[in-house]
Design a protein around this nucleic acid. Structure first.
Length: 445
RNA sequence: GGCCCCUUCGUCUAAGGGUUAGGACGCGGCCCUUUCACGGCUGAAAUACGGGUUCGAAUCCCGUAGGGGUCACCA
């Protein structure tokens, strides 16, 4: 059987780390099994869904390299939902209710106040024809609820959480259609999963109770429920599900010069028994993907960990990978010299300036001035094709008797303006003999 | 409050009755490097607490504490 997964965001905002992780796992699982990955835009909420978010979601997934094999939109499928609703009405699996949001809210508060779970009391089921007529006369229109079968316990074997059991009597009959005719997420999602042939639903554990309800919907719709995998949520470093985490999106990572490979590598493994490793090749990540390796406790997402992983990923990137983002004059050789000193790609310009200039040199002592003057003369004697740094330091050692730090530090400072950086042996040829001579001269002016 | 899930080094986790409680990241030290970084080696570091069961418990049972989720006319 070929598998099919789906990522179903609602375009009411930007994707955040949690969403991205879910999308990634759905994509990875499909990749691993040779199945298909569906991007389904759950835009039943016309009020809050925005086209700009649809575009942003597509762009974010593309940036991360998560290509979808198929795309669907719920807003294009309202007719299908209506057909199924008609059937459910005929089967007596849905019922109209007339409470207002305020009335329901009040009921819940009373239940909670009495220490009882705030479950819908099914009052609408006991409405007499007169009461309904009275509501209609008032101009009230019903919303519709799905009627859970209290006599059938809900069970499934979750790919991550194992055997699950729910007592349907402890769940509220979900509202599926508002009085204005707009759909809520529950039923359309189940219908789509059936009609689009979804075999595996991978989502956060905040959906576990929804799954219980939807399993009965699958059954009421005459379909076999797909497999479910509910992954533990991500929490912030404080151990709480933070607001900050909820708003941390792809754009914020991009601003901080985080590579998509770093995000993918971290999110693919965080909370699993596989170690988080700097793996830039997603195929390797896919190879080890296994629901059995997912932990059930919430995992911590740490920006610092991401930043460190990102650094290692950057050190793995080939020239071809980053070419487009480098200064035009920077070639593969230069990349190789500078790469090990990068914290992230944002550092490239800083190091490239060391080569292209201008550099701002520190104040030198009179002794160093003298030393640098000798350095200038010695460098002038060298051929451009020679082993610049070795020959220069060798000649200087002989001429001045300096060695160690006293030898190379003034040179480094004069030539780069900094007291640290890439290996001078590799860096000096990039700077070039002529420019180096100019800088040594300038250090003495 | 009801229901569901969870608790092992700082972090992510391995070990489903007998292990010097293992690994990875981070941290410390050493080496390499005529700088910093990279890299290599090495070290410190954990079974939430309290009761049981058992010859023996991180592992099984009960309780306590803590964490997460959910109980929407959001998804």
């Amino acid at each position: 059987m070929t598998i099919k997964t789906r990522f179903a965001p609602s375009p009411t905002g930007n994707l955040h780390v949690g969403n991205i992780r879910t999308a990634l796992h759905n994509w990875m699982f499909a990749q691993k099994e040779g199945g298909t990955f569906l991007l389904r835009l759950d835009d039943t909420d016309a009020e809050r869904s925005k086209e700009e978010y649809v575009d942003a979601i597509r762009a974010d997934l593309a940036w991360l390299g998560l290509a979808s094999d198929e795309e669907q939109r719920q807003s294009a499928r309202f007719d299908r939902y209506a057909e199924h609703l008609a059937k459910l009405k005929a089967d007596g699996r849905v019922y109209p209710a007339y409470e207002t949001a305020q009335e329901l809210d009040l009921k819940r508060k009373i239940q909670l106040g009495r220490g009882k779970p705030p479950i819908y009391d099914r009052a609408a089921l006991d409405l007499t024809a007169e009461q309904v007529a009275a509501y209609e006369a008032e101009g009230r229109k019903p919303h519709w609820r799905f009627k859970l079968d209290h006599d059938t316990p809900i069970t499934w074997t979750d790919l991550i959480r194992g055997d699950q059991n729910f007592d349907p009597a402890l769940l509220s009959d979900p509202v599926i259609l508002r009085e204005d005719g707009s759909w809520l997420y529950m039923l359309p999602s189940a219908i789509d999963d059936i009609e689009m042939g979804i075999t595996h639903v991978v989502r956060g554990e905040d959906h576990v109770a929804n799954t219980a309800v939807q399993i009965q919907m699958f059954q009421a719709l005459g379909a076999k429920p797909p497999e479910f995998a509910h992954e533990a949520l991500l929490v912030g470093t404080e151990g709480k599900l933070s607001k900050r985490l909820g708003s941390l999106g792809v754009s914020s990572f991009r601003e901080k010069n985080i590579e998509p490979q770093a995000i993918v590598a971290l999110l693919a493994r965080i909370g699993t028994s596989d170690p988080v490793e700097p793996i830039a090749d997603v195929a390797q990540l896919i190879a080890t993907f296994d629901f059995a390796r997912f932990g059930r406790a919430p995992a911590r997402f740490d920006d610092e960990e991401l930043a460190q992983l990102n650094q290692k990923i950057v050190h793995l990137l080939d020239y071809e990978d980053v070419k487009d983002r480098l200064p035009e004059t920077m070639d593969a050789e230069a990349w190789a010299v500078i790469r090990p000193n990068l914290h992230d790609m944002g550092d490239v310009d800083q190091w490239w300036r060391v080569v292209t200039g201008p550099v701002s040199q520190p104040e030198f002592s009179p002794e160093d001035h003298e030393f640098l003057a000798v350095a200038h003369d010695k460098l002038e004697e060298l051929e451009a094709s020679s082993d610049l740094w070795k020959d220069l330091t060798g000649a200087l050692k002989e001429a001045t008797g300096r060695k160690g730090k006293g030898l190379f530090m003034p040179l480094r400072q004069a030539l780069t303006g900094l007291d640290h950086g890439p290996d001078m042996n590799a860096l000096l040829p990039l700077i070039g003999r002529e420019v180096a001579l100019e800088r040594l001269l300038k250090a003495n002016s």
